[in-house]
């Protein structure tokens, strides 16, 4: 059984308390809201995409340590990534959390969230920011729900 300290690592606690890129963009190209009805996590995420490249990401999150830390680390990693690279990152992240083995290749700083896979009830907390990102990139109206 993995230790809770592997889930709530220092880096995660730090990102959840001092989320990077917190706030809103003044002129986003896409915005989306995400909601996890099970625990009430709410996130509003803005993106600025120019020529197929993510120039800026900002978010407002009210939620658990896992979802806020994921949003924070994710937002840090997205700048100057192409849309294809962003989607690829989500695929890899999902694979790390729910795939047959904890493959963390190419996940860089998001790798600290690998422990979440041991807590199936919490996987949705970690994927909520990514689902919201995908909706923001598509500029989908409405709210993304995790269930």
């Amino acid at each position: 059984m993995i230790d809770l300290r592997d889930l709530y690592q220092e880096v995660i606690l730090d990102h959840s308390r001092n989320p990077r890129n917190a706030g809103r963009l003044t002129e986003p190209s896409g915005t989306a809201k995400g909601h996890n009805p099970l625990c009430g996590d709410l996130i509003t995420l803005d993106v600025l995409v120019e020529d197929g490249v993510i120039r800026d990401v900002s978010f407002d999150a009210r939620g658990c340590a896992i979802s806020v830390a994921t949003a924070s680390i994710m937002s840090d990693m997205l700048k100057d990534k192409t849309l294809e690279e962003a989607h690829d990152l989500f695929r890899r992240f999902q694979k790390m959390l729910t795939g047959p083995d904890a493959e963390a290749e190419g996940l860089d700083k998001l790798e600290v969230l690998a422990g979440v896979r041991e807590f199936p009830m919490r996987v949705k907390c970690a994927t909520l920011p990514f689902h919201t990102l995908r909706a923001a990139l598509d500029n989908e109206p409405g709210t993304v729900q995790t269930e």
């Binding site: 809770l4 889930l7 709530y8 308390r17 625990c39 996590d41 939620g63 658990c64 340590a65 896992i66 807590f119 009830m121 919490r122 907390c125």
Partner: peptide
């Protein structure tokens, strides 16, 4: 204070 209920629940479960 400062800990979301969901995180509290995970720790308590353990």
């Amino acid at each position: 204070d400062d800990v979301h209920p969901h995180d509290v629940g995970t720790v308590l479960d353990r």
